[in-house]
Design a protein around this nucleic acid. Structure first.
Length: 775
DNA sequence: ACGCGCATTGTTTTT
DNA sequence: CAATGCGCGT
């Protein structure tokens, strides 16, 4: 045990972890709570298979859910066994399938150099399909239709098997086949197709199936609770007949139901493989007892779960901090203040992460980081590959590689403007469809002077474009990728175009930077001897969420989803509010709410030492700002584990002044009160209601007295203000409300009013227009 | 075919 | 408050 590979591989593992790592063949299910060393077990297991059981690396297939996790796993396996990981297949389901399909394309209806459509491409294709079918894009949003199609694919329901249950379903049942044939014509697979086509190819071709079952004798799956039906079938197919299937998961961390993931696959696995050994990892090595208790308090409210008994050696720990901020700006600044404070206590920036439910929430945080000089890395978000200039150029490259790619073709045919408008493109499309030609064929025919319905001007323009395209294709044959890039961008005058579409020099410079970055990627690809096809394929599967966390000392900003699998000494979860977490789109069904709860659970369990949960009284949304309430999930957390709420425990000024503004009782007396302390807004509403019911307008005076202006929020008191914070007002449409903010703007006054009626919430009104009466 | 201006409309999470 | 989309005038 002291030396030799086995000793190393098993060092520092507890009994159950060892059992998992050294398990023999056959199905194994590892139920691993957060922080229980799941990744460690998985990587050591792979190393153990190779080093101890003499399994050839190329017969092992390990599947993860993100590229980041895959990269991480590869590194760790390499570290564990040395260099010989040649042929070891580690990747996401999607990347793994793409790789195999690229080799075995003969068993699919697609060519070898198929392209991969991402969500935007898919939406375009759905749009095209709906156009062709004369389906009103106003009445049925392509998004909704696409989402229905994607769900169907995740359930392995093919176009001809799709049955619509209602009118919308009927629409989908017509769009789906059309959409699929557009993809086929384009030689394109969408994300879901990568999995579906792999299953179909294996199912329909026993020879192929046998080949891969022999090849991948050992199958390992991480985050098994996030598999959907297609993925489950893939595991079955690759795993058979030996069923050396090693899956690791935690039902409580299933957070991808929206893309078909079903944590019940874990239970199903136990049914389908009754002989499976089941190993529970319950010792947590990551978090303090306090953090675990909080996590457990939250998750235990879910009905559909197997109770677990997570435990840790790290008893005690800092209480978690709850913080109520005035708005998202103050919330972000509070986080920054805490971060700087913690830094003075010896933490590095890189020890800390700020998490949130939705990407747009990163805005306020980013701004605060910049203002406070806190270095940060933003994971995901509206990223690089979504930028218009990047998508444009990639579309060009894609068409060079595959002129039949209809979505990319439509994107670039008139970008930059070359005089081919909607009409011309439509008749080209119509002609191609009518003659049963792919776009590439049609273009060639047209250049050869075949009969076509286009007018002579359009013909000329298409021919010119065709000339260019075929020159580029020749160039792509022999020249390096960068040369192709330079040639394309200069031929189409893209840099000029950049300036045309940019509002100002700054934006233009930004876009140019992005293009240079893309160019850099191409240089890199060239060095790595990656072909155009492979570059495009990799790029399609690479997402912005895969941003690598390099060694620099920065805090990390990311969504709760992106945080899965990571850990940080300090974790902030922001926006723990009703409507955000749980998200308002997820509040309809019990299942949805349970998933939201798991999301919070995932966030909480990322924390090793200190955890902050914050929320805001009002939050900027698309229009103005909106009143918020703390998340109901917070009420599940035992008070004795928390610190910071409600009164006086937070030291920052924004909190205190906000409290004073919104609370009109001297203090909260006992623990029960503390526990159920309502936000100021809640009180305000209730008091207003009570007063109104009792017809006691004088009650409002009491309210007014306690409320003091919110300091520092806006320049200076209005010269001649009509309204003051705390005033009770009446609006003809919105009813009773109270002024919480007011300031003079150019010859008018902007008044922020909290209305009693919840439907109206907080509104910003112009005094001159709003017809407010002071009560 | 293009460009401007107005209107609408959307708003989760990711491969 | 975007970003997109449409209708109009040129």
């Amino acid at each position: 045990m002291t030396q030799g590979p086995t000793g190393d591989l098993l060092t520092g593992l507890n009994e159950r972890q060892r059992a998992a790592v050294t398990a023999g063949g056959g199905p194994v299910l590892v139920l691993a709570g957060p922080g229980s060393g799941k990744t460690r077990v998985l990587t050591r297991r792979i190393a153990y298979l190779i080093n101890e059981m003499q399994i050839a690396p190329h017969t092992i297939m390990a599947v993860t859910f993100t590229n980041k996790a895959a990269t991480e796993m590869r590194h760790r396996v390499q570290a564990a066994i040395g260099m010989h990981t040649r042929g070891l297949q580690i990747g996401t389901f999607h990347a793994t399938c793409a790789r195999i399909l690229r080799i075995e394309y003969d068993f699919t209806p697609y060519d070898q150099d198929f392209v991969i459509y991402d969500t935007d491409d898919q939406l375009n294709a759905v749009g095209q399909a709906m156009n062709e079918l004369n389906v009103d894009r106003k009445k049925f949003s392509p998004r909704a239709v696409l989402s229905a199609i994607s769900s169907a694919k995740n359930e392995m329901i093919l176009p001809h098997n799709f049955v619509g249950q209602d009118y919308f379903g009927e629409i989908v049942s017509r769009v789906y086949p059309r959409y699929q044939s557009i993809l086929l014509d384009s030689n394109a697979l969408d994300f879901d197709d990568l999995l579906v086509q792999m299953v179909l190819a294996l199912r329909h071709n026993p020879v192929l199936q046998e080949k891969y079952q022999r090849k991948f004798a050992w199958v390992l799956v991480d985050e098994f609770q996030d598999t959907n039906t297609v993925q489950y079938q893939l595991v079955e197919l690759f795993g058979a007949p030996q069923n050396n299937i090693f899956v690791v998961g935690d039902e409580d961390q299933s957070i991808y139901a929206f893309r078909g993931a079903d944590y019940r696959n874990v239970a199903r696995f136990r049914q389908d493989y009754p002989e499976a050994s089941v190993i529970m990892l319950e010792q947590n090595y990551r978090s303090t007892q306090v953090v675990l208790d909080v996590a457990n308090a939250v998750i235990s409210r879910n009905k559909h779960r197997t109770p677990k008994h997570l435990f840790t050696d790290q008893s005690g720990g800092d209480l978690i901090t709850l913080h109520e901020a005035y708005d998202d700006g103050y919330e972000a600044r509070y986080v920054m203040e805490e971060i700087e404070g913690l830094r003075r206590h010896g933490y590095d920036y890189s020890d800390m992460a700020v998490m949130y439910r939705t990407n747009p929430q990163s805005r306020a945080l980013e701004r605060a980081c910049v203002e406070e000089g806190v270095p940060y890395t933003l994971v995901g978000g509206v990223g690089f590959y979504k930028r218009r200039e990047i998508r444009d150029i990639l579309a060009y490259l894609r068409v060079v590689q595959n002129p039949n790619d209809r979505v990319s073709f439509a994107r670039i045919i008139n970008t930059p403007k070359r005089g081919i408008g909607k009409k011309s493109l439509e008749s080209f499309q119509y002609w191609a469809a009518d003659q049963n030609m792919s776009y590439g064929e049609a273009l060639l025919k047209l250049m050869d002077g075949a009969d076509n319905p286009l007018n002579s001007r359009a013909q000329k323009l298409f021919k010119d474009f065709g000339e260019l395209l075929f020159q580029w294709r020749e160039l792509a044959e022999e020249a390096p990728l960068v040369i192709l890039y330079d040639r394309v961008t200069s031929d189409i005058g893209y840099h000029l175009y950049i300036h045309d579409i940019s509002d100002n020099d700054l934006e233009a410079a930004d876009r140019t930077d992005n293009l240079n970055e893309l160019r850099g990627l191409l240089v890199q690809a060239e060095e790595d001897e990656i072909s155009l096809v492979d570059f495009l394929g990799e790029q399609a599967l690479m997402t912005d969420a895969d941003t690598k966390l390099d060694g620099e000392d920065r805090i990390t900003l990311m969504t709760l989803h992106a945080a899965k699998g990571l850990e940080f000494p300090i974790v902030f979860i922001t926006g723990v509010e009703d409507g955000l977490l749980p998200h308002f789109r997820s509040m309809e069904s019990q299942d949805d709410i349970e998933e939201e709860r798991r999301l919070l659970y995932v966030g909480i369990t990322r924390a090793m030492e200190r955890l902050y949960l914050t929320y805001a009284f009002k939050r900027t949304t698309w229009g103005g700002s909106e009143a918020r309430e703390r998340s109901n999930f917070l009420y599940d957390i035992p008070e004795e584990l928390t610190d910071g709420l409600p009164n006086g425990l937070n030291s920052d000024r924004s909190y205190q002044s906000f409290r004073q503004m919104t609370t009109w009782e001297p203090g909260i007396k006992n623990d029960t009160d503390r526990r159920i302390a309502r936000s100021g807004l809640d009180r305000l509403r209730q008091d207003l209601q009570r007063n109104q019911q009792q017809g006691k307008s004088s009650g409002n005076d009491a309210v007014r007295k306690k409320i003091i202006p919110f300091p520092g929020s806006e320049p200076e008191p209005p010269a001649d203000p009509q309204f003051h914070t705390g005033m009770s007002v009446y609006h003809p449409m919105f009813g009773d409300g109270m002024v919480v903010e007011s300031h003079v703007i150019t010859d008018d006054e902007e008044v922020t009013v909290v209305f009693k009626d919840k439907r109206y919430g907080v509104k910003k009104l112009l005094a001159s227009l709003a017809n407010l009466t002071v009560q």
